[in-house]
Design a binder for these strands. Sequence first.
DNA 1: AGTCTCTGATTAAACGTTTAAGCACGCATA
DNA 2: TATGCGTGCTTAAACGTTTAATCAGAGACT
Lengths: 363, 363
Amino acid sequence: MASPRPGSNMSAIAAALGVSAATVSNALSGKGRVSPELIEKVRAKAIELGYVPSLTARALRTGRTGVLGLVLPDIANPLFPQIAQAIENAASNAGYGVLIADSRGDIATQTEAIGRLLERGVDGMVIVPRRGTRIADIGCPVAVIDTPSTPGNTVSADHWEGGAQMGRHLAELGHAKVLLIGTSISSNVQNDRIGGLKAGLGPDAECETMWIEKVEAVSGEGCPLGLADKAAAGFTAFAAVSDLSALRALTELQRAGIGVPEMVSVTGFDDLIWSPVVTPALTTVRMDMAAIADLAIAALMRAIESEGEPEGDENEVVAGRVTSETDRVPMQLVVRQSTGTANLHASSDARTPNKPTAGELKS
Amino acid sequence: MASPRPGSNMSAIAAALGVSAATVSNALSGKGRVSPELIEKVRAKAIELGYVPSLTARALRTGRTGVLGLVLPDIANPLFPQIAQAIENAASNAGYGVLIADSRGDIATQTEAIGRLLERGVDGMVIVPRRGTRIADIGCPVAVIDTPSTPGNTVSADHWEGGAQMGRHLAELGHAKVLLIGTSISSNVQNDRIGGLKAGLGPDAECETMWIEKVEAVSGEGCPLGLADKAAAGFTAFAAVSDLSALRALTELQRAGIGVPEMVSVTGFDDLIWSPVVTPALTTVRMDMAAIADLAIAALMRAIESEGEPEGDENEVVAGRVTSETDRVPMQLVVRQSTGTANLHASSDARTPNKPTAGELKS
DNA sequence: AGTCTCTGATTAAACGTTTAAGCACGCATA
DNA sequence: TATGCGTGCTTAAACGTTTAATCAGAGACT
């Protein structure tokens, strides 16, 4: 009834060579004591017979499935492709598969999703928590990707420093009255970014923070943010904490006839898919997702490795949550066309786009 | 060495009740012959002991892992979150886990990724092929989500009809000279959408198709598309085949001082995350991803179910690729603010945004 | 009373691997 | 020559299920 797996098993190799299955196992894994010649013969026979090991059987015997769970509490997040790609890549390099769990933003569903992953016997999980949700201690190693200021964080981009880079960039361009735009006031990541922005802009800059969720709670989802009024009130830069908000700001300002970047500058975060192709292309700050994923997976590997050991060095694993020695990865400022010098009273050049610059990146 | 699984196993329940493990299995699965009272006692004991079945052991015995593979050849696709969410949801409703495989746009990597999924013993896979790639016959059931006009397609949105809806919408608004914007000429999905658009616009409409890949091959990535010239040449509507291209068009036009929708209309496809929040909000066509995922998973379930049967009814499974009887799911036109009546010579109202309408959706 | 059938359980094998323990042999050492 | 030891392999058990085969007992029929 069970569909016969393709290829053959160890017994087939063993039979073909007149040895025992255990020897085949040892030969292929290089663990036991097997003569070099036999190892070679086994390897050859394995290839000849198209042997593919049963990960299921191995999992049953060893208790390790070779699978990691990836929990993205807010899968609608446009960052998801980047994260998923980086994690999948790092995990598969480490020989692991990635099982996804979605919780559609709901906390209860998230718990249930984590439960399903546990039932499936994942060896560990990578969790990107939503809005600073604390992850309870579950029965397996967990790597948390949030922000360095979150307790229990394993590794993440240095959001604060990224904000500071952007703040300095704007300050250099002469912006002294800046509107900071975030979506949710309860997001640790966004608060870090805003903190960095303020620090980078310097103490003399006049900053105001707008939380889109609050505005929408009053005026409805997708409502105008009233940015034209802000521009009229003297704000010369709009620094959003996400490229999605930046895009929203950009189009709203353009629509109101306010030229970007001649009259006001607009910046975002994350270098999302549309950022390079909109007009003007968005100046933003990019995470090094590959590096973050590598560190997260590496920390997870260490935790899995040292699991089951008799309470050895306790400095690495605390309550199943792993930490990385380098827990913050630098962000990278990407200067494009949406930022320009501060122009308090925009004049006749308001409609003249600036030319794209040759070197787009600036560390 | 192996980390002891949490909870207990069947033998523990059996021992606690003084029965055999097989009886416990039968009781819980409802398969063998067990007295109703005993079934109840077993259930109670299972809960009491916090029993959680080992899916690994079950997989080893039955040959079914309860895991499906999801292959997204182009994970950078902004549609990915929608797809992943829908598939994960449908699969987990059916009791399946979802293992992701990314191939970063590369064909060789895709083959390798599929291989890894097979090694992991997935029971089936959902594949969203890139640009009409033919999926070779691999050793397990496969559901292909592409477009109805692709041979071997299992289920997908009716892209052609969605294009037709949009075409009719534009025609009703009086647009007779329309620029169709696609990215890749080799995409079946995009060609279907464009075909539908032309049909919906009617034979009298003057259409021109611009392929962004071709333009970029000459002028570089992220280059301007020269849409202002097109507008000057009398095009009153720009119908992109993806919201990403639509966004690119929208910002380029706005930047050039061309009012949307007063002077020209802009439309997209897929209702991506930014579409409702940009100004003006994008008129687009939405896929019913949940329905598509449900049908794909259902087809996959049937194929898995009937697998291993002695070449029975051959009408459902052909060469491992499953087909669904309803293989095309209608798309839904979402009218927002980026479309308006055709205005050949835009006059003084070019800068007056139209008010958001109350009822956003229109079937 | 003897045979048959149905019920409710048990026994045992199987899935494919890993791994601890054991065994036979050759070789060096005492 | 006996003791010890390292080498190269085998045996057997184990992981936790599922499932075919079997079996004891009870009631119904001839």
